[in-house]
Computed example of a mutant assay.
Amino acid sequence: APPEALALIFLGLLIKGGIFVSGLWLPLTHSESETPVSALLSGIVIKASILPLLRCALISDDIGNIVRIFGVATALMGVFFVIFEKDTKRMLAFSTISQLGFILAAPEVGGIYALGHGLVKSNLFLMAGSLPSRNFKELQSKPIGYNLWIPLVIASLSISGFPLLAGFGSKVLTLKSVAPWQEIPMNIAALGTAIAFAKFIFLPRGEKQEIKIGLWLAIALLTSGLIIANVVYLEAYTVESIIKAIGTIAIGWLIYVLVIKRLAIALPRVAEQFEHLIGVMTLSLIVLFWMALA
């Protein structure tokens, strides 16, 4: 195919999939959408453009390397924003960007990671819509019911890679499948995920909270899926993998409690403005043309 065609196709898929800087439309979209819409967008719709990228990556090593580079860059960029974001829905949207990076970083096993992420992120968005506030600072003084906090913790542990949940096997398989040059940045991204989702885990708890029966059934179904999908990769359960996963999460929680929780950093949103997104996409197209020609 002509390099121009490859570059244009890639740019379209990167934008629709929310990859790297082209994905900065996601936080604003998620924050303005109704909670069920956000759950569908993050859990299902975004994945629709990831599949073609994974299939393209498996066609040739040259295309695969481009996809892997974007995967690493996306994972690191997303996790940087998610650690400092104070709005629950925007935080989950940035997390989606970061987790898409994990999917692209190891195209051969991206489908398994996409399955685990789709289950957990749909669940998290639905529960975030039932929290008494979207601001993490306000949530620190507004205890949530144990009946909501427990599934919220299970989902947060899964996306952090805790054993016995779907996120553990998919994360271990992905980190085992990355190229040597990807190992350090992807492990940093995994640590950043643990830091970020400690925000939910360390929320104060209170009395039982009223939850609509339809929402409760959806949460129960998705939470069950996180446990059942754990059997997809039982080979992940080695002593080394379990110790590494628990250690990463423990370090992440420690960094959150001692450092991140006490910071009051507000990241600028100027890059999310439409004219800047267009500029970034233009620069991305130039880079893709250069990569395709190379």
Rank of each mutant, 00 (worst) to 15 (best):
F70R: 04
K89Y: 05
I69E: 04
L51G: 03
A114G: 08
K176I: 00
K171Q: 10
L283I: 12
A229Q: 02
G129S: 02
E85F: 11
I195H: 04
K86Y: 02
V287M: 06
P52A: 06
S38P: 12
I66Q: 06
L92C: 13
A196G: 03
W25E: 05
I159S: 10
A128L: 12
K244H: 14
A155H: 01
Y256R: 01
E85P: 11
L173E: 03
E183Q: 11
V79H: 14
G252A: 13
S177E: 01
P180K: 05
L165S: 06
A75M: 15
V231N: 01
F81L: 13
A218H: 01
E210D: 08
I46T: 15
I195T: 06
P151H: 02
L283S: 14
A39R: 08
D61N: 01
A190F: 05
L11P: 01
D62N: 02
A179L: 09
L139C: 04
K176L: 02
T96Y: 11
G192P: 11
P132C: 10
L124I: 08
L40S: 06
A105M: 10
G101V: 02
P107S: 00
L126K: 04
G214C: 05
L58M: 09
L254C: 12
I159C: 10
R134Y: 13
R68S: 01
L267G: 08
L24V: 08
G110E: 00
A114H: 08
W290S: 08
A166G: 04
N123G: 12
F102R: 09
I219D: 04
S38W: 03
P268K: 08
G17L: 07
E210F: 08
L76S: 14
I9N: 05
I112P: 07
G101S: 09
G111L: 09
L277N: 03
L221D: 12
T223A: 05
I286W: 13
P3H: 06
L165T: 01
G214M: 06
A166Q: 04
N135S: 11
A189D: 11
I243R: 14
A292C: 02
A220V: 09
L293V: 00
A106N: 08
L54P: 00
L115H: 04
W290M: 09
L54D: 00
A105F: 05
